[in-house]
Amino acid sequence: MSSFPDFLQFVFAGLTSGAIYALIALGFCVVHNTMGIVNFAQVDFVSLGGMLMFSALFAAGLAMPLALPAAVLGVTLAALLVERIGLRPARSDNPLILIFITIGLSIILRGLMSLIWGKNRMAVPPLTSDAPLVLMGAAITPQALWIFALTLAAIALLVFFFYQTSLGLAMRAVASNPTAAAVVGLSAGRVRAASYALAGALGGLAGVLVTPITTLSYDVGVLLGLKGFAAAILGGFGSFPGAILGGLCLGLLESFSAGYLSSAYKDVTAFVVLLLVLFVRPKGLMGK
């Protein structure tokens, strides 16, 4: 019964959601590397990306090529603001307290979004037409191709940023040894703000790309974001190649278990495999 086109279809579906998980996972890793915490507000950056895209298209009337960067930029600025007024004044360096502050911030962001955009479900149009292409018997939507292309572009930009710019170098320094980075005069506050903004941009991009496939609502990011966190952990928390690998693995795993086992239990399969991987490799696939 499982023919090759079916298989290919599941691969496409898995890679599409996998790419989204990878983007979100990268956002988690960037913040973790410089601040040492899980930033649960990441899940709302995803929703916020979709929301801003919706407003840029319909309220501001921007064209698609302008609306996308505008939405991503908007989330980036929002993330900067959240870091500045939400995290930096905290009087504790206990990671558990900081993580729960991000959970509180996430509740606030969701509250704000439901106030501004309401709690109804909305639809965002895909980047270009939605007529699917057929490839060896399996259909693939142009939106999925956009997701692959823009995820790759984002990864390329990240590599450029981390290896070719001084801010990227500073962020790698703080990630590898915060004390030594402070000793040579790097401003930890600036680096943290930058990493938070970067996480916002990655989450926002994921939101802009995924909301045409799902629907848009103020809490659409929660489940996606948790999957992104799971992907980051699966790959080894803090490792960028791990985040990408983890995202794709999780996406494929979900898609195959939905296709071949049971769509009702696809989350169960995905998380059970995640747990088994962690039990065998407690630091994730590519963790150190």
Partner: peptide
Amino acid sequence: LPALRLHGHYLAMATLGCNIVVYTV
């Protein structure tokens, strides 16, 4: 027994995963 070999964020994810599995079931 296996999960408590994990530390920090990994343990958080493992317990979160268990919760999602139980909830889905």
